[in-house]
Structures are given as C-alpha cells and as structure tokens.
Design a protein around this nucleic acid. Structure first.
Lengths: 234, 234
DNA sequence: ATAAGAGTGTAACATGTGTGACACTCTTAC
DNA sequence: GTAAGAGTGTCACACATGTTACACTCTTAT
C-alpha cells in the first residue's frame, strides 16, 4: 500500500515539474532522469511555517510542488510588506542561488500546507550544465525575477496612494475592456502596494467620488481613462 | 597613423574587457577570439546623451569601456530617482536581456563622454553558450543585479527618513572606525534616498540634537551606535 | 578681491498617510 | 440558521514629509 502511494505521489510530482518553468520543453522521462541523477528530497511544510528567514544563506534550490508560499519583508517596526506569492510549480529564491551574496532577501513562510522539492546548490549546478534547455529556462527565470523586482521599485517610488492605484490599474488595463479584474482582496492589494489598508480604502473612495473609477469587489470599472492617466503624466 | 591608433584603441579595449566581470578568468586572447567570432560594434557617447529610455526594448548587450553612465527612474512629477551608476567595465542592463519582457526599467544616460561595446542579443546568446566560464559569470552578474534591486527595495521600504539614514550609515560603517565617509553631497544623498533635500537636512539636524551622529561635510561620526541600531531594530 | 554658483541650515505651512477604533457586510462551516 | 471570520467603509487624530522661501557659507573663476 505504501508502495502504490509512493508511486502515485511520484507521478503527481513529475506532472507538476513538467509544467514548471525550469523544466519547460522537457519530457517527463527526461526530467525524471535529470532529477534522479542528482540527490534531492521532498519536504512537507505546514501552514504558517517559516521556511527561511531574511538574511539566511541560500544553499538549495526549491520548487513548490503543492500549497502556497509567500515572501515578505519585515520592516523594523514589525510590519510586513508582502513581496510576492509563490504557487506551484514556481521556483523559490531563484535569483538568490548564485551571485556575490546568495542570501535570502525576505522571510519565506507558508500560506498553506504543501510540499517542496529541494536540490542542493552543487547538485543543481550540475543539473544546469547537464542540459542546455534547463540552463536557458533558468536564465529566463532569474532575469524575470530581476524584472519583477525592478517593477516593485517603480511602485514604491510613487509618492501618493492615488498614483500607485492609477499605475496598478493602467498596468492591468486592456484596451477595449473597461473592467479591470483584481484577483486580490483590498487588504491584499494594500500589502502589495505597501500602504495601510484604511488609507487604501479612503483613497479608493476619493477616486470614486471624482468619477474616475467604480470599485466593485474585485472588479474595477475605468470611468475616466484620461484623468487616470493624467495622475501619472502630470 | 590611423592604423596604429586603431591598434592602440583595440589593445586598451581588451585590457578593460579582461577585468570585466563577464570575462572573468578568461585570457585576452580568448576574449579576442570570442568577440571576433560574433558581430559587435563600439559606440562613442557624449555627456548627458540618453542611450536608452525606460520602456524601450533591450536588444543588445552593452559593456561600458570608458566614461560613466547612470540609470535613473523618472517619476511622473518629473523628479528623478537615481538608481545606480555604471562604470567600466560593467555591463549595462544585464538582467534585462532575457526574461519575459526584456524592457529597460530606467532611463540610461551618460554622466560623461565615453565608449561602449555593443553585441546584439543573438550574438550574445551564442557567446554565452560557447564558453562555460562566460555563462557562469553571466549568471553571477544577473543574480547580483537581482540582489542589488532587492537591496534597493529594502531602502525604499523604510518609512521614515531617520530609518533610511540609519540604514545607510550602518551599511557603510566599518567596525573600529567611527567615521563614515560619504562620497556625495547632501543634495546627492537626498536624491539617492528618494527624499526632499530640506527634509534630509532637518532630520540630520534632529539626529545631531539627539547626540546620535555628528555630520561634518562628507564625514559622519557615529556617536551612539546602539541607539542608531535601535532605530532599525525596534 | 569680488562675483557667481553650489551646497547648506532653518522656518512656517499644507497635505498625505498611518493608527486605532467601530460598525457593517459577506462568506464559510457547522 | 447561526456563529465565526475575513473583508470592507469610515471616522478623528497625530505626525512625518514635501513645499517654498530666505539667509548663510564655501568654493571657484575671473
């Protein structure tokens, strides 16, 4: 019984890995042989468990197989600024495995229970050099992370909440459709933008009063595109 | 005469490239043969010239050979937030050559006249796959960039100017020496921290009144290390 | 020496945001 | 159906920062 369970679990794992960015364009058999050629382990984590602290050395590559993790910066007043959420089949701290420091920039904690695949750095390096495609994928991931962070800086550089909201909406705005879908609670968005939740609500209220937008749950209607743009363009 | 000049210039270029992070551990002859196997060009730029605008597509790898460049974000009030300076023999926008978007995150402008080496993306990709060491170097550079940006986020995440100052000083503080050297004017520092200049001066004044520091030109004496740390640690 | 320019100290004021509090709605599970 | 929890709207208050303005020092070039 334990055997069939193990087989079942393994099968599921490889299905997750197959759609993982790091193994893009590889077949399950290829992934299997690559993984089995380097030592690795599967770790179970529970909800709210902290998997790594900011400042800790990054010594292993981690890929989320099940559940959800989050990276958050703890500022020194004890408040936390959510940086990103990590779902399967994403890699954790990909941009911090190499480089001059290789130190966790955020606290890594679990938003639910789940599983991760762990490969130690040495083994991961071998894995990278053993397949050109994996290498190319990894490059794309790391560059993508840098771009994500750069994006984040753009956000934090805005002074007012109104600017942040305008920028966020215009980023997710597709021409032709006046509705922007927010797949996040207002509370979550506040964390994302690095502002206090009541302040966000207040500003949203102001922007509704000005007839710029209509905020409905997770749907936001853009009422006055030009004025919204002029908040940023002025 | 033109020939000897060319040879002289070429020699100088390869000396710069030899100490460049991307060609670390390679000999001049190896670099020469790698470069000559892919099409490239040398571009002269003049002071204050803008080499790339934020949002533009990144299609080429650039390495600064001479002079100084800067990346700066222009916020929508027209103020600029300096992000980093790029000296020879650094690579420009290394983290934005690959990845899902490959778009310049900042305006790239010249702080002096100088020269850059340009290699188009396709050729650069070939270069990467043709030498394992170059590839490894590139990985380190890109990861380093991500880490730099992450660092920057730490800065921008601080709420108060006092926190920013404390963080900045403690970062540049070497144990044993109570004096931190600021190689920047107060005005420049204000730009770096993303705050208004009078506000910075005011806060410095407050911190001097509290006997935390003594600010003298570009020398800052740390008077009360523990209290300074507790600004961040609280 | 003198003028010009950059960098600095400082003040009064306006404003945007965080804080803490409370009531209300909506969802979910039992 | 009901209770618990998460998410939301809103308020009064405190406070940190930007803004604008002016005077002062220091450096540099003429």
């Amino acid at each position: 019984m334990c055997d069939t369970l193990t087989i079942f679990v393994k099968k599921k794992i490889f299905e997750v890995l197959k759609v993982s960015p790091i193994f893009k364009e590889l077949e399950i058999e290829e992934i299997n042989s690559l993984i089995n050629n380097c030592s690795h382990q599967i770790k179970q984590f529970s909800n709210k468990e902290v998997l790594a602290y900011s400042g800790e050395k990054v010594e292993k590559a981690m890929i989320v197989l099940e559940g959800k993790l989050q990276g958050e910066m703890i500022d020194f007043a004890g408040n936390s600024l959510k940086i990103e959420e990590i779902d399967p089949p994403q890699m954790v701290a990909a941009a911090f495995l190499y480089g001059p420091q290789s130190i966790f920039p955020v606290n890594l904690s679990a938003l639910s229970e789940g599983k991760i695949l762990i490969i130690y750095k040495n083994d991961f390096t071998k894995l990278l050099s053993s397949d050109q495609r994996v290498l190319k994928n990894y490059l794309n991931i790391v560059s993508g992370k840098a771009q994500f962070l750069s994006q984040k800086i753009t956000f934090l550089s805005f002074r007012t909440i109104k600017e942040k909201i305008a920028y966020y909406l215009l980023q997710n705005y597709k021409t032709g459709n006046q509705i922007v879908i927010i797949n996040q609670s207002q509370t979550g968005l506040a964390g994302m933008l690095g502002v206090a939740r009541p302040s966000l609500a207040r500003t949203i209220g102001e922007m509704e009063a000005e007839q710029l937008i209509r905020w409905d749950r997770n749907q936001v209607a853009i009422l006055d595109l030009k004025s919204l743009q002029s908040i940023l363009g002025k």
